[in-house]
Simulated assay, not measured.
Amino acid sequence: MNSPSELTFFHAPHSRSSSVRVLLEELGAPYRIHAINLKDEAEYDPSYRAINPLAKVPALKDGDAVITERVAIHIYLPDRFPAGGLAPTVDDPQRGPYLRWLALYGSCFEPAVIDRQQQHAPAPYSTSPYGDFDTLFKTLTDHLEHQGPWMLGERFSSADILWASSLNFTTHFELIPEHPAIRAYIDRYLARPAVQRTYAADIELAETQDAGVTT
């Protein structure tokens, strides 16, 4: 692929796509925001469905390439901007654990949280993609307690932006139990300048959308 040029980032403030905005800021990547107003249901507009037929944010355009799905973007961007140091290279021993935690989030954690929140009857352990919520939750908290402070130990990565942003949301809305290791992990994440900068910018963007200003 050619040298990085400005990316187009399809983003809605205070949504899942906020973690990608943090990632872009941490990487120092060049990007412009195409804001999606979820209150106006702009995600269902045909022009956006042409980008993501599922009508979900985030989405990213890099030249002619379109990348949807948050986990995919969290893998793609650090590899696209390796100078940011947010992903182990393919020959790094930590590459496997890094990919494991990224995949575990999308394939296990989100489905488990939704099932729990919706009070769905659990699927048989052998057919559930995550087994059961309690085992998954203990796997996460044990890892943070004994192998932290980040998912890769002392090394902060894109996986932490994905996980910590989501844990911040799910604990705030009481979708998962409180746990000291998770609280400490979230607090470390929230103290990062790129996170604070992004959250402040998202508040401003949300206020602009509420005022009916097109961005």
Rank of each mutant, 00 (worst) to 15 (best):
L190E: 10
A159M: 11
P88R: 00
A87V: 13
R21I: 07
A200V: 02
R70H: 10
P177D: 07
T141E: 08
L24S: 08
S158A: 15
H11E: 02
A29C: 08
I182A: 04
V90K: 13
G85H: 04
I203Q: 14
P111W: 06
Y199I: 14
R80V: 03
I33A: 03
G148I: 06
R188Q: 08
N52I: 09
Y31W: 02
G212P: 03
S158Q: 13
E41I: 06
L102V: 04
L144R: 07
W101H: 13
Q196I: 00
E43Q: 15
A159N: 07
Y105M: 04
I51G: 04
W101K: 10
S19F: 08
S15R: 03
R80S: 01
T208K: 14
A121R: 07
L167V: 06
T8E: 07
L140E: 11
I67V: 15
T8N: 05
S128A: 09
E207D: 12
R116T: 10
H34A: 15
L175T: 10
G63Q: 06
F109S: 06
E69A: 00
I114Y: 10
M1T: 14
E25V: 06
A200R: 14
Y130T: 12
K61N: 06
I51Q: 01
P88G: 08
I36T: 02
W163H: 11
S157C: 09
R95M: 09
G148R: 08
Y76K: 03
F9M: 03
P129Q: 10
S107Q: 10
R70K: 10
P30L: 05
P193M: 05
